[in-house]
Amino acid sequence: MQPGQMAYDRGSTVFSPDGRLFQVEYAREAVKKGSTTIGIKYDGGVMLIVDRRVSSKLLEPKSTEKIHDIDDYIGCATSGLVADARVLVEEARKQAQTHRVNFGENIGVEMLVKKICDYEQNFTQYGGARPFGTALLVAGTDDLGAHLFETDPSGALVAYKATGIGNGRPAVMDLFEKEFKDGMSFEEAGTLGLKALSAAVEEKLNADTVEIGVAEIGKKFRRLSVDGVSDLIGKL
């Protein structure tokens, strides 16, 4: 680190002279070291694909949960620090339930993501706390259709047709730029997403190390069974 940076990287609330928040940038680096996570839209829904590859054969793959239910029609996938992600998922669930109790309806996907990002942004503006070292891909459906959002440790959010986070993001985005098409079917999107994941991890995929969540218009958010994942992998 340059000596001039030392005075500005000790707190998340201090800007450097060139307008950077170093703690937020370090949090983004934590996300880059996370497992590869993919989101892709298709005709009538959104698919989340996560690599949950384990580092030891003694570890139970199912214990490394990377896809979470937030509401009946909204789910998310995470990359980065697992504990930080769990806190954000709990906050998202609380916001969704509070909205349902107050207004008697499911919360909109964009509204929920903005509330999550507002919560994250507070940890970049006030002293005594650090930014969250995690990013979320939020997939869901509401009256406006199917949505895919990506959150950032700074509290920013972006809507995507297809995206990836984690250590395989460059390979995933390169493939999506070349091959993604609007209006793909469920099978086409699943095959393309798994192809991107395979390119990112550079290993052969199997159903035990891949987790897939699906949000479809008119249906509740769900995870594909092992057989369902195997079928999509078999079409690669």
Rank of each mutant, 00 (worst) to 15 (best):
P3F: 10
G4H: 08
R10M: 09
G11S: 11
S12M: 08
D18K: 07
V24P: 02
Y26L: 08
A27T: 09
A27P: 08
K33F: 03
S35I: 00
G39C: 03
D43P: 07
G45M: 07
G45E: 04
I49P: 05
R52I: 14
R53Q: 12
V54C: 10
S56A: 12
K62R: 15
K62S: 14
T64F: 15
K66W: 00
H68N: 03
D72W: 00
Y73T: 14
C76V: 13
T78M: 15
T78L: 15
G80F: 03
D84S: 12
A85E: 07
A85S: 15
R86N: 14
V87P: 06
V87Q: 09
L88Y: 14
V89Y: 13
A96H: 02
Q97G: 00
Q97W: 01
Q97D: 11
H99C: 13
F103S: 09
I107S: 09
E110F: 06
M111W: 06
L112R: 09
V113A: 08
I116W: 06
D118I: 15
E120I: 15
N122T: 13
Q125I: 08
G127M: 12
G128K: 10
F132L: 08
F132H: 12
F132N: 08
L137K: 12
T141F: 02
L144P: 00
D152N: 06
P153W: 10
S154C: 10
L157N: 04
V158F: 14
Y160N: 08
K161L: 13
A162V: 14
A162M: 13
G166D: 04
G168P: 10
G168H: 11
P170G: 02
A171Y: 09
A171R: 08
D174Y: 08
F176H: 09
D182M: 10
G190K: 05
L192I: 10
L194R: 02
L194W: 04
A196T: 13
L197Y: 05
V201R: 01
E203F: 02
K204S: 14
A207V: 02
A207S: 08
D208G: 09
I212Y: 07
G213A: 12
V214D: 05
V214H: 09
K219C: 00
K220F: 01
R223A: 01
G228E: 09
S230E: 15
G234A: 14
